[in-house]
């Protein structure tokens, strides 16, 4: 089902928009958790089984294009919303996206400090940890510590900047292209780009390095 497509109303049911269905799913979870029938952590665990499948393939392909097409990269960094629309990706009405470029001197990390604002038309659904209070607060207080937990050990010389995504403006990261990938096709490069790298808790490495 596409984002814009409304679900057909069903006789005897008043649910007919995604907002209403989302509220119903949330209400059901809240009641079941309050009554002690199920824990949120058990639901988080089960959702993690498939959440990678929704995955950041679109974001990865945009990164690969930016690595191989300098003019596109310039447009992406200048206005990510427009550059993504140019490739046919978008769908967040009235909402803005900004892409932050990692360099050897500056590394970007994205968080939503209040909830879980996330550029999902490009990156897919956010991982569970993105919504956890532990990530939301520690990413701001101790970004290097958080990145280390994800296995990213940046040189001390690198400056870390943390950006707060909101409903109005959502960030994602253009990671550095790994060395030794000259002549690779966009498809090959896209394979290397992980969701963690697009959020900034990881970087992109060449296999076997």
């Amino acid at each position: 089902m596409s984002v814009d497509q409304k679900i057909q109303p069903v006789e005897g049911l008043s649910m007919h928009s995604d907002a209403e269905l989302a509220a119903r799913a949330k209400a059901m979870e809240a009641i079941l958790v309050e009554k002690g029938l199920i824990g949120s952590d058990a639901i988080d665990y089960m959702s993690s089984v498939y959440e990678n499948e929704v995955g950041p393939q679109i974001g990865a392909s945009i990164v690969a294009k930016a690595w191989t097409d300098p003019e596109f990269k310039e447009r992406l960094l200048a206005d990510a919303t427009k550059a993504c629309q140019e490739l046919g990706f978008g769908g967040m009405q009235g909402e803005e996206m900004t892409v932050l470029e990692n360099t050897p001197d500056v590394h970007h990390l994205v968080v939503c400090t209040l909830c879980s604002c996330y550029p999902w038309p490009v990156l897919g659904l956010p991982p569970n940890w993105y919504k956890y209070p532990a990530y939301r607060s520690r990413a701001v207080r101790d970004p290097r510590g958080v990145m280390e937990e994800f296995g990213l050990d940046l040189p001390d010389s690198v400056e870390v900047r943390v950006w707060d995504s909101s409903a109005e403006l959502r960030y994602w990261v253009l990671p550095m292209r790994p060395a030794g990938t000259d002549g690779w096709t966009e498809e090959q490069l896209a394979e290397l780009v992980t969701r963690d790298a697009l959020i900034g808790v990881g970087d992109v490495t060449r296999p076997g390095v």
Binding site: S2, S47, E51
Partner: peptide
């Protein structure tokens, strides 16, 4: 594949 966050939530629940 899930298009909406509530879909994966309903599934996982």
């Amino acid at each position: 594949a899930f298009d909406q966050a509530w879909e994966i939530r309903a599934f996982a629940m």
